[in-house]
């Protein structure tokens, strides 16, 4: 059985109708709660306003978080790491050692460019990743 790419797409990445409905309901509730809070402030029961204002703020924070999460999933593209690689060259005649960036076609024990000191051909003796700076340990 062959599955086509079309019917196997990751469809739920975008915001679904259910999520949107939940957001709308929470939004209405939060808005109402804030309105009640401001009403209570000017009424004879100002102590109730704190609760209403708190509920409204929490509701809007939840909406913001939901939007943030959805956006993070749909638009953020992961980085594919690229590393720095160096080539080590040594002159067999005068033992001069040189390090340069890796070039495509380099391989260990390849006769490479002429030595800058004695003009003999330098040989690639090593290829490895450039050492990454050490991360400071968390205190």
């Amino acid at each position: 059985m062959l599955m086509t790419e079309q019917n196997t797409q990751i469809s739920s990445m975008s915001m679904s109708w259910t999520t949107l409905a939940v957001i709308v309901v929470i939004g209405i509730f939060s808005l109402f709660s804030l309105w009640m809070g401001f009403q209570a402030l000017s009424s004879d029961k100002p102590e109730q306003s704190t609760y209403y204002l708190l509920t409204g703020t929490v509701g809007f924070s939840a909406i913001g978080y939901m939007f943030f999460r959805t956006k993070a999933v749909t638009t953020r593209k992961p980085d594919i790491p690229k590393v720095d690689v160096v080539t080590i060259l040594e002159c067999p005649a005068c033992e001069l050692k040189r390090v340069r960036d890796f070039k495509r076609g380099d391989y260990i024990y390849k006769d490479d460019e002429p030595c800058t000191r004695c003009e003999a051909n330098m040989v690639i003796t090593g290829i490895h990743r450039r050492a990454e700076p050490e991360k400071k340990p968390k205190k």
């Binding site: 790491p81 590393v83 690689v85 380099d106 260990i108 290829i127």
Partner: peptide, 27 residues
């Protein structure tokens, strides 16, 4: 998967890889 993704750069450019330590010692 992350290891395999790092291999893409190595294989594309013909860089020595971690698995090459055995042949490197012998060479």
């Amino acid at each position: 998967i992350e290891a395999t993704s790092a291999a893409i750069q190595a294989f594309r450019n013909g860089m020595p890889i971690g698995d090459g330590v055995g042949p490197l010692v012998v060479s």
